[in-house]
């Protein structure tokens, strides 16, 4: 995973509420066995509108997306995160995110920043003309004006994002702890995680 410390540049002033992952990447783009090339299908339905923001040269290659409440709701498809990455987006700012999308974004090194609606509205306004700056280390969003919005982030996620850590590798290193749980569970809760076999 690519470490992420600082994202700065153009921000797409999208702002839509309840954007589901079917909108971010429709199902027919999910028939792939790789992670690449999803950007072409990103926001496909919205991009049929010639005036859409995603194909506006003004926002070409913008690393930041500003969205409305409940971004990424619906299907758990991680393809939504891959599609954003393929578009070059590495940070999404919204008043709230769906739980699964936020987790998928994190696993792919996309920073999700939760800010109150009024601050998101302000950023939507700034992004019409000016860049936005997000610093993960200090947990702040700033603009070329006087705006300075602090945000919260889970410390473990922050650490992983800053260092670009591979979570699977980290957990595999805890093999002994997992084995100890399995031994304990094999006694008390054998019907849960004990050897699972089908009746003949």
């Amino acid at each position: 995973m690519t470490p992420i410390r600082h994202v700065a540049g153009k921000a797409i002033p999208f702002g839509a509420k309840n954007v589901d992952t079917d909108i971010i990447i429709p199902a027919h783009w999910l028939k792939t066995i790789t992670r690449e090339g999803m950007g072409r299908g990103a926001f496909e339905v919205l991009r049929k509108d010639p005036d859409n923001l995603f194909d506006n040269p003004e926002y070409k290659g913008a690393p930041i997306l500003i969205a409305g409440d409940n971004f990424g709701c619906g299907s758990s498809r991680e393809h939504a995160a891959w599609a954003l990455l393929d578009l070059g987006i590495t940070c999404v700012i919204a008043p709230s995110f769906s739980d699964i999308f936020a987790s998928n974004a994190f696993k792919n090194g996309i920073l999700t920043v939760v800010l109150p609606q009024d601050q998101v509205d302000r950023l939507l306004e700034v992004a019409q003309t000016d860049p936005v700056d997000i610093d993960l280390e200090s947990q702040t969003v700033t603009t070329p004006f006087q705006d300075r919005f602090p945000f919260e982030i889970d410390p473990f996620r922050k650490h992983c994002l800053l260092e670009g850590l591979d979570e699977v590798g980290l957990t595999l290193a805890e093999n002994d702890v997992i084995s100890a749980y399995e031994r304990r569970a094999a006694g008390e809760l054998s019907f849960l995680s004990g050897k699972v076999e089908r009746a003949a």
């Binding site: 991680e78 699964i100 987790s103 998928n104 696993k107 792919n108 979570e167 957990t171 595999l172 399995e182």
Partner: peptide, 22 residues
């Protein structure tokens, strides 16, 4: 609960997930 593909990989490799209590 539903998970993303990175978590599918995590479960296959470790039979665990890193989660915050809801």
């Amino acid at each position: 609960f539903g998970i993303g593909t990175s978590e599918v990989e995590h479960v296959l490799a470790t039979q665990t997930l890193i989660l915050k209590q809801s």
